[in-house]
Amino acid sequence: MTPLLNVRDLACRYRVTGKRGETHWLHAVDGVNFTLDAGRTLGVVGESGCGKSTTAKLVLGLQPASRGRITFAGEPVSATRDSHWRAMRRRMQMVHQDPLAALDRRLTVGEQVIEPLIIHGLKGGPQTPRERALALFDAVGLRAAMFERYPHELSGGQRQRVVLARALVLDPELVVCDEPISALDVSVAAQVINLLQDLQGRFGMAYLFISHDLKVVRQIADEVAVMYLGRIVEQGAPDDLFHTPAHPYTEALVSAIPTVGQRDRKRIVLAGDPPNPVDRPAGCAFHPRCPRATAICRSEVPPLRPVAEGRLAACHLVPAVSARSAAA
């Protein structure tokens, strides 16, 4: 089966002007590969500046890639805004972090859920746009009475439900969620996480779920990719990856999460900040902060390769297994 989304060697760089007017290149995304099957959820985690949001924009064709190839349902994704691009945009939608910023404050939320149907000329069909939007309101747990309200009249959780309804009204196959939970309070975040899972069960779309919150990603993802400085450093099933991390960065990231349960758990505290993507360290980009770095880490870039069944890691210190035995 061909995957719904296939990303090969994706890269995106930005031109940055230095203090003396010289040109630098900021490599936001630097050779990313992954696939996402229909109806599944890939979680992308990493710290700010690791390229996870840029990856989202590239996947949706919102900005051009400097290198690499993205195929969605067998067709190439480009950032050229032609009719082909628009037709494809109908099948892939996005949910942002801040629902108030994502909504138009001057339109009622009902109008905003209808709007995509009008933009894509889908006024016909068995349901009127209003009926279709109301059905989505019901699916995301909003009362029909909310239809005529404005965004400022709703709570944060309700607004995020409106954003979800608007994303789903076109019946997309892929929804890219960029930190959809981060702006919500704990009790409301749990409602939205459950809702995302229920909607996937009902409508069968795939999620590319981007978050800095490992706990939320573990809750929702079928597979997780950990990014560091524009590259995927580890990928695998959430429980395997978070319980027995292979890459030293994943290990540190997991141990850095303060949890309610184990108070005396040993924590690996990484020194320093993530390096500037303009001045990417040679070799493994993580080596200046890695507690286990050796000579080879400073000179050679570790490839992302299978290290266990269903698990990929980019680290010189983790022994590789052959692709054949990993697949077995």
Partner: peptide
């Protein structure tokens, strides 16, 4: 109790979260 039940966790089996209904 509601706050604690609504928190996703990294440990233990993956179970459906129990949200606190409504809003503040």
């Amino acid at each position: 109790r509601g706050l604690l039940a609504a928190l996703p966790s990294l440990e233990g089996p993956r179970v459906r979260l129990t949200p606190v209904g409504g809003t503040v």
